[in-house]
Simulated assay, not measured.
Amino acid sequence: MDIAAIRRVARAAWHAVYDDILGEETVNEHLREGYAPPVLEQMIELEEVGLFVSTADDDVVAYMSCGMTDATGFGDLDLYVHPDYWGEGIGTELLHRGEQHLHELSVRKIRDEVLAENEIGNGFYRTHFEKVGERTTQVGGQEHPVNVYERRL
């Protein structure tokens, strides 16, 4: 698994989506913490976490991690596509691969949350999931509205 390539995709996607919402420094802080090589290495080693990539022209252009979040059968996923490849169906392909992994873990329903201001993310989730609620969350010391989505497996 190419950790540097996953970090490159994360950097491009996070800055494209979240700089205007959270601020560049908050995005950089999240990338430093959440995508540090030891964190990604640990995710790769954990069998219960599925980490998948999509490639185009031999380059990693998208990645997804997924796993069970609750013993009652709920799972979640994190899916990011490099902005140069948005709208090409790569996220949908990864979603289906993640669903296979989650099904093998006995996940019955995916529950995910997307910041309401994240137009790209909400567009993807509206296409593939059912919106089941709203709440707020703290990010970078500020409250942000969040849309809650579910998809039955």
Rank of each mutant, 00 (worst) to 15 (best):
P145N: 13
V114A: 08
D112Y: 13
H82T: 00
Y63H: 07
H128W: 12
N147G: 07
Y149I: 01
A4K: 11
V139M: 09
I110Y: 03
G89D: 04
A5T: 02
Q142G: 05
D70L: 05
D2N: 06
D78Q: 11
G34N: 04
Q142L: 05
E41W: 01
F129D: 01
E29S: 09
G75R: 04
I90S: 03
P145L: 13
L153C: 04
H103T: 14
E134C: 06
T127C: 14
V9S: 04
G91V: 08
E143T: 08
V17Y: 11
L153Y: 05
R108N: 12
M68L: 12
E134M: 05
D20N: 02
E29D: 15
I110V: 06
F74R: 01
A16N: 07
G67H: 05
I90Q: 04
L105P: 07
V107Q: 02
L95M: 11
E119K: 12
E99D: 06
G75Y: 02
H144L: 09
R111V: 15
H128M: 14
D19I: 06
G91E: 00
V27Y: 00
G87Y: 02
T26H: 01
D19C: 00
F124K: 00
L115C: 00
N122C: 14
S106H: 15
V114Y: 04
P145M: 15
E119Y: 12
Q100D: 06
T136C: 03
M68W: 05
Y85F: 15
E119C: 12
L105F: 09
